[in-house]
Design a protein around this nucleic acid. Structure first.
Length: 678
DNA sequence: AATTCGTCAACCAAC
DNA sequence: TTGACGAATT
């Protein structure tokens, strides 16, 4: 039942102010989710139909948690009627319903990061841009930023009043590449992440009837993590919600950590400009962390300018001091963390009470090794994820091709895997013919198989066999057969397991890779069971592309410590947190050459990390770190110097140990040996 | 034409 | 430590 008396005054105000625009500035650990959940429940109780409420969250996991918690306050049946999800998921749903207006086929697919990279690379080659002097990732980044700001292909990318991101040459290159990239997407019946927001914006802008239809259904809006929304997302929100303006934005400018992705803190700082007459509520009481942790957090963030000043306070008492630890090298750092973690578990905490946070994914490896060596159960969130593994991607590429025959990236990926004698030279010839005759690649292959072109005739039979295979499976899929069965048969027919073992040098490696394929099958089967009849393979693939976090294969859900990046830790909390690698150039991270680093954002990142801890916090660093095989001396992070004396205790175990001595000795011996040999 | 081998550079965060 | 690419090999 709903008890508003249990809330503090600002929280209550945020809950009961249901009409008109409202900005909730929610400091870390200030009971934000609780407020959101109560607010929705309260509205439903005030007889707002649940189906008229749209809540946007940052991740799918946050969405399901929100729905569940609302369900406990009202009824599960009511909670089901809510629309809760990410901006991208909402956009996808809208595109599914309205694809015809845009001239897209029903079976369009979403380009993942790999597809995007492939398309950008190809486009760069087309305009003869040397991909050694220009990094395709940066080019793609610029295109994505432009899309997020509503800049179309063919328009100048140059952003007014803002520094160039990687230098002007990059912007010129991106301007060249953008239209070609866009054309390639359309030709393949694909949309990218930014299109999931941008295309709905276009649709709503262009059709008043459509706008009215959505506005009749959706009348109340709630956006979580508002500080990380970009211009296109704001535009979508405005198109849906104005002029009614029943918009509640919840966020914290101090936790804005996605500037590099185009998120605009201005959205939160200028909320009242977009939604005139907005009220503002500040939640500053922290219910999460003990005083020392909070004091450290406040001290670190206080050095940022241009913030909506908040001072978090807690009545939980000072608690333990934050422990600042210096280690000799990254391996020792990992060993220290794992040793403390084990001691903590021995003293009664569960493994799942602990989180290890780091700035970059590469830092996870040493930590993982140490965890495994000591037998501590753990999960890694993000990073090189399961679905990014090559074997998994190969299998998924087949499935994607069956769903969308236009998906050339997938086609090229698997056309010769397992090896079937259709190499680059053959494909290049067919590609050329396809371009000349303006045919989709698969259609061109069909024609090549029929012997239409002299130069591909030697491979015609093999090409024919491949096309036949694709057609046969695509037909089965179209006929409504279960995707998992199709995948199963496919794996047998092409002997995927055999092909994988043939590639691997050791039997264990092969077994590991084959297990990945089996897990993919299981994941697909799970999806089919969960979604029943309405779950199509297309949806499964879309969901994977959109948010792969909560569908990873995992053991019996359970009690495991968790390793993740600071970005992935947003919104979470743990009794014990280890924040590792507090060193200059790592946290704060040194920007890539040419890209000015955003020190304020790095500071916010540190702040996010610190405020994840409830009871105990470790801040560790190493004096030396292995970088591409050799030890690199490190200096302590400037953020450590900001911590208030009373709130932490420092330990320095960075004197070289026997182990590290031995390691650097062998390193130099090997180096010497190599030099002598060479 | 396909596969394998060896060299070289990269490596920040993710819907 | 991985990956992408070009040269050498079958």
């Amino acid at each position: 039942m709903l008890d508003l008396g249990a809330l503090n005054p600002p929280q209550r105000e945020a809950v009961v102010t249901t009409e008109g625009p409202l900005l909730v500035l929610a400091g870390a650990g200030s009971g934000k989710t609780r407020v959101i959940v109560h607010r929705i429940a309260h509205m439903v109780q005030q007889s707002v139909p649940a189906s008229a409420i749209l809540a946007m969250t940052f991740t799918k996991k946050a969405a399901s948690e929100m729905r569940e918690r609302v369900g406990k306050l009202v009824s599960a049946r009511r909670a089901k009627e809510l629309t809760v999800g990410t901006f991208h998921a909402f956009g996808l749903q809208m595109l599914r319903a309205e694809h015809a207006r845009l001239g897209y086929p029903r079976q369009f697919t979403i380009a993942d990061a790999g597809d995007q990279a492939a398309l950008v690379k190809r486009a760069m080659r087309e305009v003869k841009i040397d991909d050694r002097s220009f990094d395709h990732r940066r080019v793609l980044g610029l295109i994505s930023l432009a899309k997020g700001e509503g800049i179309g292909p063919g328009e100048p990318i140059r952003r007014e009043g803002r520094p160039t991101l990687h230098g002007e040459e990059y912007e010129l290159v991106a301007e060249e590449v953008y239209p070609r990239y866009e054309r390639a997407l359309r030709a393949m019946a694909m949309v990218d992440f930014d299109d999931l927001i941008g295309l709905p914006v276009r649709l709503l802008r262009e059709s008043e009837a459509l706008r009215r239809r959505y506005q009749e259904r959706l009348r109340y809006f709630l956006v979580d993590e508002y500080q990380d929304t970009n211009r296109a997302q704001l535009e979508l929100l405005k198109l849906l919600s104005l002029p009614r303006a029943n918009v509640c934005a919840v966020g914290d400018d101090d936790q804005a950590i996605y500037g590099w992705r185009g998120a605009e803190v201005e959205n939160i700082l200028r909320f009242h400009r977009h939604f005139p007459g907005a009220r503002e509520v500040r939640l500053e009481q922290n219910y999460r962390s003990f005083g020392c942790i909070l004091d450290c957090a406040n001290a670190v963030i206080a050095k940022n300018e241009d913030r909506k000043a908040k001072a978090l306070f807690s009545d939980r008492g000072p608690g333990e001091k934050v422990r600042v630890v210096a280690c000799p090298d990254d391996e020792a750092e990992a060993r220290f963390v794992v040793a403390e973690l084990r001691a903590s578990i021995a003293s009664g905490r569960r493994a799942g009470d602990h989180a290890i946070l780091y700035r970059t994914n590469l830092q996870s490896r040493v930590l993982e090794e140490a965890m495994r060596a000591e037998g501590v159960p753990y999960d890694v969130v993000g990073g090189t994820e399961f679905f990014d593994r090559r074997e998994v991607k190969d299998l998924l590429a087949y499935l994607r091709l069956f769903v969308n025959g236009g998906d050339e990236v997938s086609l090229l990926r698997i056309v010769n895997f397992p090896s079937r004698g259709i190499g680059d030279a053959t494909m290049e010839k067919i590609r050329h013919r396809a371009t000349v005759e303006a045919l989709p690649l698969l259609a061109a292959m069909r024609k090549a198989a029929a012997g239409a072109w002299e130069e591909v005739r030697p491979a015609a039979q093999r090409v024919g066999a491949f096309v036949e295979l694709v057609d046969r499976y695509a037909a089965r899929l179209a006929a409504g057969e279960a995707a998992s069965r199709i995948a199963h048969d496919l794996i047998d027919e092409i002997d995927l397991r055999g092909a994988i073992s043939a590639q691997m040098t050791s039997a264990e490696a092969a077994a590991r890779r084959i297990a990945l394929v089996d897990e993919t099958l299981i994941s697909l089967e799970r999806f089919e069971v969960r979604e029943g009849k309405k779950g199509s393979l297309g949806q499964y693939l879309a969901q994977l592309t959109l948010d792969r976090r909560d569908d990873e294969p995992e053991g019996p859900a359970g009690d495991r410590a968790v390793l993740m990046t600071l970005h992935a830790a947003k919104g979470l909390e743990f009794p014990v947190v280890f924040l590792v690698g507090l060193e200059e150039d790592l946290l704060p991270h040194k920007g890539i050459q040419g890209a000015p680093q955003d020190l304020a954002e790095e500071r916010r990142l540190a702040y996010v990390g610190i405020t994840r801890a409830r009871e105990r916090l470790y801040l560790t660093r190493s004096a030396t770190r292995l970088s591409r095989g050799r030890p690199l001396p490190r200096t302590p992070s400037r953020f450590l110097a900001d911590l208030p004396e009373h709130a932490f205790e420092a330990t320095d175990i960075s004197q070289p140990t026997e182990e590290s001595e031995r390691r650097s000795e062998t390193f130099f011996e090997e180096l010497l040996a190599k030099l002598e040999a060479g």
